[in-house]
Each structure stands twice: as C-alpha cells, then as structure tokens.
Design a protein around this nucleic acid. Structure first.
Length: 265
DNA sequence: AGGTGTTTTCCTGTTT
DNA sequence: AAAACAGGAAAACACC
C-alpha cells in the first residue's frame, strides 16, 4: 500500500488538466451557443465532441476539411457535409443544424440530450472536397470520453458510398489514442512528447496520467501504466510499434501504424 | 453461439 | 529500492 503512486498521479493530473470551463478530462466545450460565431478552434472542438459521442474513430474523417470557422461551417449545405465527411457528414449536418436552432433559442448546449444509437462501421469518404475548405492543418482527435451535449436522433438510413470494413471496435485502439494525443498539442499538456517527429519516436512524460485518461476512455478506472504498457508491448509483434532500446518510456511507431506522419493524410 | 482480435489482469523475472 | 521492461497465460470484451 504505497502512497507514492497516488501522489505521483495526483501531481501528474493537476499539472495536466488545469482550469475551469473544462470537462474532467480537460476538454473545453465551446462557450458560444451560436455556432455562427465559433472560431476555428471551437469548430474543431465540436467536431471532436460529435465524433466521440458517436464512437467514431477520428481517422474516419478528414479533419482538414473542417479547418473553418463557425460562419463558414454554418453555411455548408448538407451536400457539402457529405462531400467533406462521407456518411459521417450526415451526422455532422444534423448536429450543426440542431445547434443552430438551439443557439437561436438560447438553449445551453450542455443540456441537450443525445442518443447515439447508430450503427457505424466506419465510413471512409471517397470524395473530392470543396476547394475553399481544403487546408491541411488539424489532424486528429483528442483523448477521452465526454459528457455529451447536443445532436439529434438519426435513424439508420445511410447510403454508404464505399463501406470500407475496418476492425475498430468501438472508438479507437490504444495506439490510436496515443497517436491522437500526440497529434494534438493543444490538448496534450505535456502528457506525451515527440522525441523524433519524423521517425515517429515519442516518450511518455506522464505515464500514469495517460493511463488514467485511457482508462477513462475505456470506462476503466483501474487502468495503470503497468497494464497499458503491456498492451503497448503487444504492438511490437504487430509492427504497430517498434522497440526502442534502453530508453525508458520511449516508443516508436512502426510500419503498421497509420496517420501519425506530418505528411500523411 | 462460436471464433477472432484486442485489451486487461496478473505474475515472475530482469534491467535501469 | 523503485519504476520500467519483458512476456507468458488466461480472462474479459467487443464484434462479426
């Protein structure tokens, strides 16, 4: 029974997830109730929320297509959403429509109900994007589950242009979760750090805090770095990670890990 | 209902 | 001595 571990974790977490206006996991939710006035960043926040909410993997849609502010976002048509995000576009469109509405009605975003009961096996948009919203910048998604706001019920009636079957059981895999933290400097207050960006080498700075966050995502409060790291070691054999000798808390993406490169996707 | 793939849990031993 | 690393084994889980 050691106090040391909890103490360490506490300090990791406090150092990590700061101030008010955040969910327990540190996530900020856009304050503005009217999406028209959202900044690019807030748009991006919303995107993450919706993806999390529906347990859709972050890599399922090209986040670059949404490097736009709220005004632009609100002016996109349904077709634009479909073009920009494939079948997920439908969900996004519904969500934003709802928010536009509730914004006008002055309803707090956080009070809206949602029932994510949607069958989603992983849509990959195979479309060309409206030129005006193509601007690679933001890649991926932040960690953690969320106490969810907004968005409507959507019935299952999707036309999937191209149903790529992936495995991806609900949400992300561990390595994707790690990747997404890495790709998200704003939401990664010193949890994990690139050691060599182009080689895909990274290091855990706050191992227990990351484990805690992972546990949170998986709804498992007893997750520890010990256990997380066991899962990481299984990745060696699968080429998702490569061993990095001698250096503690350091890992490297392998050839079977996708979506971590700057140039990629 | 059974099979598969991934992660979790636990453990023993080694290394830093 | 404490924290990481290594993997084996088996259970748990989510999907299909």
């Amino acid at each position: 029974m050691s106090l040391t571990s909890t103490t360490t974790l506490d300090s990791q977490l406090t150092a990590t997830w700061g101030p008010a206006n955040t969910y327990p996991d540190g996530r900020l939710w856009p304050q503005e109730s009217q999406p028209q006035f959202w900044s690019k960043y807030q748009v991006w926040e919303w995107l993450q929320q919706v993806m999390d909410m529906h347990q859709i993997d972050a890599s399922s849609i090209p986040f670059q297509n949404f490097d736009i502010d709220g005004h632009q976002l609100c002016s996109l048509s349904y077709q634009d959403f479909i073009r920009a995000a494939g079948s997920v576009g439908q969900i996004l469109f519904h969500s934003i429509s709802e928010l536009k509405w509730s914004g006008q009605c002055h309803v707090e975003i956080g009070q809206l109900e949602i029932k994510p009961e949607i069958d989603f096996s992983c849509p990959f948009p195979e479309v060309s994007y409206p030129p005006e919203i193509y601007d690679p910048l933001i890649h991926s998604l932040a960690p953690a589950v969320s106490p969810t706001p907004s968005s409507p019920d959507i019935k299952r009636s999707y036309s999937r242009p191209h149903q790529v079957k992936k495995h991806n059981p609900r949400g992300t895999h561990l390595w994707e979760f790690i990747r997404d933290i890495l790709l998200n400097p704003e939401r990664n207050p010193g949890l994990i750090k690139w050691e060599d960006r182009t080689e895909g080498v990274f290091r855990f700075l706050k191992s227990e805090a990351v484990a805690q966050l992972w546990g949170k995502k998986k709804n498992n409060s007893s997750m520890t770095y010990e256990k997380l790291s066991r899962a990481m070691r299984y990745y060696y054999k699968r080429g998702i990670l490569e061993r990095v000798d001698g250096r503690r808390l350091v890992y490297k993406f392998g050839k079977n890990a996708r979506g971590w490169r700057e140039s990629e996707k």
